[in-house]
Simulated scan of single mutants.
Amino acid sequence: MPAILLVRHGQASFGVGDYDRLSDHGRRQARALGGDLHRRGWRIGRVVHGDLRRQRETADELLAGYAVAPGPAVARGARVERDVPRSVDPRWNEFDHEGLVARLPDRHRRQIASAIGVVRGREPSAVFQDLLEAALEHWIDGAEDAVQGSYSVFAADARAALEAVVAEPPADGVPVVVSSAGTISVVCGALLGMDRRGWLQLNRVMANSALTTVVSGRRGLTLVGFNDHSHLEGPGRPHRTTR
């Protein structure tokens, strides 16, 4: 298996009642990536995603964009989206980011409030990001979350999910995994030999619909590309977002 393509979901609906669905912009991002994969000549053999709605919808839009785009894959008889085998593996799900923030101990919330102060006009997403990173650090330090479970289990499940993709019989094309920033970052951090906090740096910068490439070879799994969002660059393309 030469490569595994890991895709972060498109922009979800932050600040709306149901976060777990793509925004219209997120749908355009996923379609743009699908078209770009086609133009690059990637042949999609199968798609795996978690059971979150935003991951499933990203897979839908990616395959739709892939099916209609012109490019080298057409000449090689690329499948349309309905022909690509799909499967669901919940180990590719994201951690419960909203739940972790909601259950962050009060002492941590007070420390954050003291550190950032009350800034008029500060973006809600920026405030949420500060709370999220504090909640993640608390979780990484070994806090067992009643709903989420432990960070160690989350990280082990993500790596096992990747190993399961590698263990599948070779398909007629590359496997595409649609997941989330935290899950993909945990996998990448492990491949790079980062410590527990290292993956937070990766998680912080990953763009919606970004492409990460892992190669499986004689020496095991190697990360060869991370957070590629070139399909969002240029006139008429959906702009880059991280939340």
Rank of each mutant, 00 (worst) to 15 (best):
E137C: 15
L22F: 14
P2K: 07
L131A: 08
D106H: 14
A135T: 09
S180Y: 00
R196K: 15
F14N: 03
G41D: 04
R43H: 08
L192Q: 13
Q11W: 00
E233D: 15
W139F: 14
D18Q: 14
D36P: 00
R43A: 07
L232H: 07
N93I: 05
R237L: 07
D20T: 10
D36M: 06
A67I: 00
E163F: 02
T213L: 09
W139E: 01
D83E: 15
E61L: 05
F154I: 03
A190W: 03
E168A: 15
R79D: 02
Y66H: 06
S209K: 04
G198W: 07
E61M: 06
E137I: 14
L211H: 10
V48F: 04
R120S: 14
L211T: 08
L6C: 03
V205W: 08
A167L: 13
G99C: 06
S180V: 00
G234R: 10
L192S: 11
A160D: 14
H25K: 11
V186L: 02
R103V: 05
D145W: 12
H9V: 03
T183W: 05
Q11K: 02
V7Q: 01
R197F: 15
E163W: 05
P124W: 07
H231Q: 11
G65P: 00
S209V: 07
R237H: 10
E137W: 08
V147D: 10
L221Y: 10
L52Q: 09
Q29I: 01
T212E: 02
I4A: 04
R76W: 10
P124G: 07
V147R: 13
R197C: 10
G71Y: 03
P70L: 09
R39G: 03
A115F: 11
W139M: 08
A167R: 14
A113E: 15
I4V: 15
M206V: 14
